[in-house]
């Protein structure tokens, strides 16, 4: 991961993304012993002192040590707490909070909302956790975006997916990719949706029913979207029956995963403008779908086109 990614993240993310809302507080009029116990149980290096909704100070490990040094008497929290509290606003970019940690040397900072009310606590650990979450979300998105191979053939975008059998975890990845490509090219949501649903059903069929998986090829140009799906078996026993809504040969296991309602092929046919299927028991299934692109299916402004020549298309 490059430095610039983290750099961009800490500027983009807000304090509210990284703060913890699961924190302990203590009222000012209880014994320091209570505060000490609460901090130990919560393994917290400090906690806000609150009277009702109002934060009146913060009590830290250092305050506890000073109190113990002084004999650990039955003093109240308000006698030892730090009143001059450095706080951060939850709308601030993360980088501001990180700067304050460096400047003050504190291990935690209370977070205030728009109304000045305490709404969280931010620590270097909570920042690290939020950054790791974001980075892994970015990696997931990258992984998904890079599923399939996209090439330009003149003005035709060709996206190819090899869909392995039984890889249920990946169901829908091709669909998401195709939809993104259509969105990036200015196709309207209604068309995106028809194509995405059909692609989703096709890849699910390949995953659930085929012996060796199969291939989906999507061809996209200004006038149409075409999908060709092929596999090497086992083939469909009775296509007419398979086209009946609700007819399914899926196992209970597959149904537990949420698939196999028997709506796949009927749904694919419903979404596409043209639908052709050939299948032979023992040798495989071939499916061809076409979606017409009417002038209304595209946004007025064309996105910048990629140069032709079969080069790899980079996904933003």
């Amino acid at each position: 991961m490059e430095y610039s990614v983290i750099h961009e993240l800490v500027h983009r993310l807000k304090v509210s993304h990284a703060m913890s809302t699961d924190y302990v507080t203590v009222p000012p009029n209880v014994a320091m012993r209570v505060a000490q116990q609460r901090m130990r149980e919560a393994r917290a290096g400090g906690m806000p002192v609150t009277r009702g909704d109002e934060m009146v100070g913060i009590v830290t490990t250092e305050d506890v040590i000073l109190w113990l040094d002084g004999g650990g008497r039955d003093d109240l929290v308000e006698q030892w707490m730090t009143r001059d509290v450095v706080t951060v606003d939850r709308r601030w970019p993360l980088t501001e909070a990180m700067g304050l940690f460096g400047k003050t040397g504190f291990g935690r900072l209370p977070v205030l909302d728009e109304g000045g009310q305490l709404c969280g606590v931010i620590t270097p650990e909570s920042i690290l956790k939020s950054l790791l979450d974001e980075v892994s979300a970015m990696l997931t998105a990258k992984d998904e975006a890079e599923s399939g191979r996209a090439t330009m053939d003149g003005s035709v975008l060709r996206i190819e997916f090899d869909v392995p059998a039984r890889d249920y975890e990946r169901a829908g990845m091709a669909s998401v990719r195709v939809k993104r490509e259509l969105a990036a090219r200015g196709f309207k949501p209604q068309l995106q949706r028809r194509v995405a649903i059909a692609t989703h059903e096709c890849e699910t069929n390949l995953i659930i029913h085929t012996t060796e998986g199969g291939r989906i090829v999507a061809l996209v140009d200004d006038g149409s979207v075409k999908l060709t799906v092929s596999d090497k078996g086992p083939g469909i026993e009775d296509i007419e029956r398979a086209m009946v809504p609700g007819f399914s040969t899926a196992s209970d296991f597959v149904r537990d995963l949420g698939f196999g309602a028997g709506m796949g092929l009927p749904n694919i046919r419903k979404c596409a403008d043209r639908f052709e299927i050939r299948s032979k028991r023992g040798s495989g299934t071939w499916l061809h779908l076409e979606f017409d692109v009417t002038p209304g299916d595209r946004a007025p402004a064309d996105p910048p086109s990629t140069d032709g020549g079969g080069e790899e298309v980079r996904i933003r």
């Binding site: 249920y168 975890e169 169901a171 829908g172 990845m173 669909s175 998401v176 939809k179 949706r193 995405a196 649903i197 692609t199 989703h200 995963l257 949420g258 698939f259």
Partner: peptide, 9 residues
Amino acid sequence: QAIRTALAV
């Protein structure tokens, strides 16, 4: 897949 389904539709 629940999320991918949501995206598709």
